[in-house]
């Protein structure tokens, strides 16, 4: 299982080699996420519409290694935007990927952009 975790590494904007077309903006629920698959990786994309911001993280929750975070609930802790895993409500920062209420590994995060109604995720 740890191998599965190792597949997910944060990509900084300057490390992007390929921008993958994920799906259309209109497919997204407001203040919610969807999961997409590229190169065998599962990426969770979040439409934080209250903040008019987009985020992308690994879909794998590090706690019990479940492919689930795209179905998580969005929210904020202070100024920090976060997602809560549906299984045990572990929360993670959408900015840094850090676990906010425990000692789980941080999520890998990915660059994201929306152009002409299409959402793209950047992979290395």
């Amino acid at each position: 299982m740890s191998q599965q975790t190792l597949n997910y590494k944060t990509i900084e904007p300057n490390q992007v080699k390929t921008w993958y077309e994920a799906c259309k903006e209109e497919q997204f629920p407001s203040d919610g996420g969807l999961c997409v698959e590229f190169e065998g990786l599962q990426i969770a994309i979040f439409n934080f519409s209250r903040r008019k911001k987009w985020y992308a993280t690994q879909n794998l929750c590090p706690h019990k290694k479940q492919m689930i975070l795209s179905r998580g609930m969005l929210g904020s802790e202070g100024e920090e935007p976060k997602v809560a895993c549906p299984f045990h409500k572990k929360t993670f920062s959408l900015e840094s990927g850090a676990n906010l209420n425990g000692h789980e590994c941080a999520l890998a995060t990915y660059p994201i952009k929306v152009e002409e109604g299409v959402v793209y995720v950047g992979l290395g």
Binding site: R51, G75, S76, G78, A84
Partner: peptide, 10 residues
């Protein structure tokens, strides 16, 4: 205030 969370939303 803020954006809500996994406690107040449900």
């Amino acid at each position: 205030r803020g954006d809500g969370c996994e406690t107040c939303k449900p």
